[in-house]
Every structure is written in structure tokens, then in C-alpha cells.
């Protein structure tokens, strides 16, 4: 089991009314984590229904008690100094227990668990968001 949770120093805040589903966040996220633009591996997912003009955003809330970390049988998800929960890929065997446990259906497993690490406190998704729909809020929570 992970240690007692430390305060999360910042978190993503999504304002759905401002997001217009351009997917720039997914482009930036996958590019910085994978070295290529692979939206299917982005750590946050904007799903578009083009026939209703609707979209949903699934993103990691960096839960205080991190059910994903608790569920991992290999202790591959731990809390970093900066406060975010991150995956140690060398320990992850891709079993998917974390994805099952995630209450926001945000974690995906493609070989290994793909989980938001907040870009270590400087999220690329927020920097790329043109509409103010995604912000980074410093929090003492």
C-alpha cells in the first residue's frame, strides 16, 4: 500500500463550458509523453460526439487517496515529491487493476498504465489549451 498521501501541489481544473473540443491537449500530452502525437495514448481524453456537438473530458484528478495506486498489485503507482501520482513503468505489468479502480475512467492500459503525471507540475495540456478550458490550479489539498 502507498504511504499516507501527501498534499497535491496542483491539479488540473476543467471548465467544460470553455472547452470546445479542439483536442490540442491530447496532442500535447501524447507528444511530450510518447515523443509522437498519439491521441489514443494521451493521459486525458476528449471524446467528441460530432452529431450532437457534445464532448466529454476524462482527466486524472490526482485523487488524494489514489484508488489506482491502492489497486496496483505491484506498487507501480507512487506519489512523487511534487505531489502527483505517477507510474513506474519498470514495475507495471499492464494488468489493468488501476484502470478498473479509477473512479473517473481516466486511466488506460496500452502495454503499461498510461497515467497523468501532471508533467511534474508543468502540464503540457494546460499550456496548449487555447480556450481557458483547462487550467492548472495550485492547491494545498
Amino acid at each position: 500500500m502507498p504511504d499516507q498521501a501527501k498534499p497535491v501541489r496542483g491539479r488540473l481544473v476543467v471548465e467544460p463550458a470553455l472547452c470546445h473540443a479542439c483536442q490540442s491537449c491530447m496532442v500535447a500530452c501524447s507528444l511530450v509523453h510518447e515523443g509522437e502525437v498519439i491521441p489514443s495514448k494521451a493521459r486525458l481524453q476528449v471524446t467528441i460526439d460530432p452529431f450532437k456537438g457534445n464532448h466529454t473530458i476524462r482527466y486524472c484528478h490526482q485523487c488524494r487517496n489514489a484508488p489506482c495506486a491502492r489497486a496496483c498489485p505491484n506498487h507501480a503507482i507512487s506519489q512523487a515529491e511534487a505531489g502527483h501520482w505517477q507510474v513506474d513503468e519498470s514495475l507495471c505489468d499492464g494488468c489493468g487493476a488501476c484502470a478498473e479502480a479509477c473512479p473517473f475512467h481516466t486511466l488506460t492500459v496500452i502495454g503499461v498504465a498510461l497515467k497523468c503525471d501532471t508533467c511534474h507540475g508543468d502540464p503540457a495540456c494546460v499550456a496548449s489549451c487555447p480556450s481557458g478550458g483547462l487550467t492548472w490550479r495550485i492547491s494545498s489539498r
Binding site: V32, E34, E36, V37, I38
Partner: peptide, 21 residues
């Protein structure tokens, strides 16, 4: 598609895109 599009210099491509946006 589940693959990726390669980008030669990701950080610089993101930076320039942001400035033009």
C-alpha cells in the same frame, strides 16, 4: 488509427504552435 504522427522536435513544435495560436 492507434498509431502516431512523428514530430522532429516536439518541444519546439509545441512552443511555436502556442505562439501562433
Amino acid at each position: 488509427g492507434h498509431g502516431g504522427v512523428p514530430v522532429a522536435n516536439p518541444r519546439e513544435a509545441l512552443r511555436r504552435s502556442r505562439l501562433v495560436v
